[in-house]
Every structure is written in C-alpha cells, then in structure tokens.
Design a binder for these strands. Structure first.
Lengths: 332, 332
DNA sequence: AGTCTTGACGAAATCGATTTCTTGGACTTC
DNA sequence: GAAGTCCAAGAAATCGATTTCGTCAAGACT
C-alpha cells in the first residue's frame, strides 16, 4: 500500500502563500482578512483539501462522532432506535457509529474502551446487561446516556419507556377482551425491562376476573425468536394451558406466533398482546394487541440528551420516560 | 467538561523509570529486556494505561477500524451481512463501524469522506446506487470492496451472488409447480441486482409452458415493503392477473404478502417465490419458495477480501460470486 | 589485548491541525 | 510628531504514540 496522497494544511498554506495557522483560521471561521480568505479558499478548493480528522482530534481532544452501542443489530427495535439517534445526531453535525455487542458484556466493554480511546464525543448505550460497567466512561467524564434499559445509576442520563404501565395495559386488554387465563412470556430475569413488563402483567392478573394469580403461566425466555417459540410451546403443553398470552418483546412474539401456528391456534381465537411493534413482515397480525414502542423516539430523545451534555450541560442527571401509547392499537 | 484524565505513555515511562520509546516497544512487541518489560507492564497496569488511538493513528497513518456502508439499516439482509463482516473483522482484530446511507448518494459520499479523513483501514460498500462515487477512495489508494452490488468497475474487488441464476431457478420452480402466469416484482431499474434477478425470471418465462412471454406481468418497485404491496395490488388488478409471482427481494415480498392477504389470496394457492430470506417473523411461510441469500457469508467474504488488501495484497481485483443454493427450500 | 558485532534503549523527529505567543504595520489620539 | 491601540498573521509549541538514529556496554572473535 503506497502512502495516500493526503493534502495537508501545509500544502494549502504554501499554495496560498500564507502560513498554516492562517489556513486553520480560515477553516475554522476565525477572523482573517478578506484577501487571505480568498487565497486560502481557492488553494483549498484546487487541492481538494479535507482536514485530517485524526490530527484535529488529537489536538482538540474531541471528535464529532457518537458511539451507539446496542445488544442486537438484528432486532428491528434497535435498528429503529439507531435510526432515531442518527437523525438527531446528523442534524447537529455529528456522525454515528454503530457497535453491536451481541449481549456480550466483554464486547460491550471493548467498545466502551474504543469509544474512550478514539476520543468520541459521547456514548449512547443500550446496556447488554444490568451489570454493564460504565465506570471508566464516568471516570473520564465522557458523556453517556443509557437507553431502553436504565443502569440503576442515578448519576447517568437515561431514556426509557414506562414498562410496567405498558405491561399492565397490555395484559388488561386481554382480560377485557374476555380471556381469563392470561400467560406471560418475558425476557431474562437479569434484564430490567423484562422484570418491569412482567410486573405489569402480574398486577393485571391479580385484578383479572378468574385470574390465575400465581406464576404457573409465567415463563422467562431470552428476548429472541427461538426462546419465544419454546416458551409458548411449553405453555401450550400444560394440563391447563392459557387461552391468551402477553409477550414482552417483539422477537419472542414472532416465535410465539410460530408455536401457536404449529398448534393450530392463532389470534384472535387465542389472545396475544405484545410489548413492542412486531417485526414488520408479520402480514397477518389481525387480532394481535400491540403496545407500540416508540423506538425511534427513544433514539431521538437519547441523542438529544447526549448532545446537551456534549455542549457542556452540567446539570443533574435526567431520566426521560416516554409514554407507550396506552390506547392499545389493534393492528390493521 | 473537564479534561479526561487520560493516562499517557509518558506517565507510564516515568513510573517505570524508562523512556517513552521503551514503553511503546513493550506495547508493540518489539524486543526489550525482560526486566524493562516487567517494569513497564507493572506501571501500565497500575495506571490502567490504554494507548491513545488517535495519536497512534496520526503517526501510523492507519487504524484498525473498517467502515461498512449500507443503504438500509432496517433491512435484515443488510444487518445479517453486517454480522458477517463483523465476525470476520473481529477475528482479525478490527472493529467495524456501521454507516447508514438511506440510499442517499450524498450521505454515502459524506461517509466515504469520513472514512478517508478518519484514516480507516478500509471500506466495505454496499452501494446505494450504480453511480456511487468511489473515485476518492481509489485515488487515495484505500482498500475498498463492493458487496451485494458491483460497481461496474473492473478495478474493485466485489462480492455478489449469482442474481440471474437465482431469479431463473426461482421462476422456474413456479412453472414446475404448475403455475402458468408468473409475474415479477423487481427493484429499481437503476439497481444492478434488480435487473439481473428480473432477467432470470424473464428467461424462465420464455421457457415456461403457456408462458406469457412479455412484460405485462413485470413491475419495477423500490425494494421496500410499501412498494411491494403496491406492485402486487397493481398486478392483482389486471384483467388477467398472474397466478404466481417472483419477488426480487425480501421486503417487497413482505409487502406483496400483505396485498395478497388483503385480496384473500395466499400461498400455496397463489404461487410466491422470493429472492432472499423473508424477514423473520413471517410465521406463515408455508408454500413460499425462497432463494436463500447468504447474507452473512457475503459479509464474511467481503471482509476477507478487504483484510487481504489491508495486509498488502496488490494483486488484480477479484470478484467473488457466491452461489445461491439452487435447490429451492420450501420453508418449514 | 584490541576491534567488531550485537542488542538494549534514550533522545529527538514525526504525523497534521490547532492555538498561544509574538511581531510588525496601520491607525488613533493628544 | 510621538506614544498608544489594535489587529492580521507568522513562528513555534502542543496533543500522544511511533520510529529512526545514535550511544553505550557486553560479549565474540582474531
């Protein structure tokens, strides 16, 4: 690999007949004479000069790049969230780089280190795990925002939804529709959102008429398609199976639908309520109750908080809780 | 924002009682005495030293980061491809940053500039458009690999699948199953893969018994869900509608299924063959013929080529064409 | 014993942009 | 006309790691 013929500020300076400092001033909007500015701009254009971001960053100790660390790039919820972050960040002149951890705390730690070492302007983290270690970010005073899951740290900005309320209204809507044995498939017990959504369901079952009221119909799974399928199959195999189920995320709902289908069951005969929008190509979603999850808005809100911090906001940590729309939408 | 207390090589050197050069040598595996190494490692560990990547990159003119530029982060095909790139890159010690262009050539150009200015080690590009401008990358001699779509440039490495063959066998399988009026919904005419897949279909229709043989049943859409739905609805509204359709990508197939559903039709009564795996939660995919698209493998192959180039391979450009599996899998 | 080789390692240059410090000329002001 | 003010712009330091170059000492060989 030969050396890339990168144009430097020195070449521009030489061509314009000024000093490198003046070129820098022109590029950064500091006051220079009209004549110098003209010369520099002309030279820069002729040479197709692009400032070297690495050098600028080394000097300035900062960059215009935000890291977004997510646990599963193949989950549409997170890609929609990424879209939201990107929209907001781009509008403010920042670029976003996406880092995928696969729910692996070690990979998450690696990416956090990279974000630090790369002098990125800030980090938006959808934590893989409740035990995510952000101490190094905090220690180096780099802005961080947690999204989707909080980090149980009062000193960190966070953006979440009201998981318990969403779980409650989803489960209640099933009772209201006349179902009486409403099961629940939630995520790993170590994940905050899984607990909260399940608690919403539990509260509804305690209120529901004929409700079972214990955890016979509760299953913990892994927030993935296969786990949802297995949990659903397990529930259907019970001596007294449920007649409806609340599923705590989109991917598991897809799996649960497959299991229902295999068993010859389907909504609306079998009640199904889902926390979060179904991954798109679910062409037959009639009769499925969905708590819409504002993924993009979560991303936008998180980016907004982060940009505030990057701009120097030193106020106390804020937690933004977005409303899931309590009117459940029966899709299509 | 106070200054981050970043530990530098100088502090490690002072603590270990050696010169910064020696610290660098230890960190990079150059030969030093066992005693020096021990001192340096101890000091580095105590101070939790992490080398500053920005400085390293400025000096070394390169980094261990690969940019992956994709047109649509919300398309599972591209996220699976990203997964493949990431697996391979990580194994070689590289990080991957994902850049989403939304099919916008201007954003693509911006990200290419960033990749250059950030001294990234290389770029894997799933071009937004046949007219993508990679000339600046080429000019600066930075490794580039095109994936999914070629760039019509013989001097650039590319990884694609055999789009024509896949389209052909998909359409043929519909004829073989007894359908006679096989339509086609393909992508934008400016996109190479859309043309090739359609050509495969066209060849099959010319061979098919009772085949229509002209383009009455051909529709160009946009590779997105809504476009697929509209095109399908349009075809169904014909005086002599098709009895089967070949859809050239996953998202449009999801849309087409919705339109079929609305019309009270569904596979296997209405024939459907898709190029590429359906986005997952398509729980009722029985009777749908799918040409599996090795998205992850495409990403892995592209990363492999790129890593070769980064390692200094100067040979002529290679084009890798992955086989789509000609045995069509009838899902589930 | 004296020269040569070898190897560890420190001093200093380097990457490219930014920024402080300094200089010199133009313009005021009494 | 002399002293003071202001401002554009060049010289040089700086960010932190790498790397070349040179030094010095220990061991090898004649």
């Amino acid at each position: 690999m030969t050396q890339p013929p990168m144009v430097t500020i020195y070449q521009v300076a030489a061509r314009a007949g000024v000093s490198p400092a003046t070129v820098s001033r022109v590029m950064n909007g500091t006051k220079v004479s009209a004549e110098s500015e003209r010369l520099v701009r002309a030279a820069a254009a002729e040479l197709a000069f692009t400032p070297n971001r690495t050098a600028r960053r080394l000097r300035g100790q900062t960059s215009e790049v935000i890291a977004l660390i997510i646990p599963d790039i193949e989950n549409p919820f997170f890609t929609a969230l990424a879209r939201g972050v990107e929209n907001r960040a781009r509008a403010a002149g920042y670029s976003v780089v996406l880092c995928n951890t696969d729910d692996d705390p070690a990979r998450e730690a690696t990416y956090i280190d990279i974000a630090l070492a790369e002098h990125m302007a800030g980090v938006i983290l959808a934590p893989a795990d409740d035990a995510s270690d952000v101490s190094r970010l905090i220690a180096s005073n780099r802005p961080v925002v947690a999204v989707d899951r909080s980090l149980h740290r009062p000193d960190i900005d966070a953006v979440t939804v009201d998981n318990r309320a969403g779980g409650l209204s989803a489960a209640e809507s099933l009772f209201a529709a006349g179902f009486s044995r409403v099961g629940c498939i939630t995520g790993p017990s170590s994940v905050e959102t899984a607990q909260l959504r399940m608690e919403g369901w539990r509260r509804a079952t305690r209120r529901g008429r004929d409700a079972v009221g214990d955890d016979t119909l509760l299953r913990y799974a892994d927030y993935r398609v296969d786990g949802g399928r297995a949990a659903m199959a397990d529930l259907l195999g019970l001596p007294e199976p449920p007649d409806a189920v609340f599923v705590a995320n989109n991917l598991m709902a897809a799996g649960a639908l497959e299991a229902l289908h295999d068993a010859g069951l389907a909504p609306p005969r079998f009640g199904l309520a889902v926390f979060g929008d179904l991954p798109f190509a679910s062409f037959d979603r009639r009769g499925i109750r969905v708590v819409p999850l504002p993924a993009r808005e979560l991303g936008e809100a998180a980016a907004g908080l982060l940009l505030d911090r990057i701009a120097g906001d030193d106020g106390p940590a804020r937690t933004v809780v977005l409303r899931t729309d309590h009117r459940l939408q029966e899709q299509r």
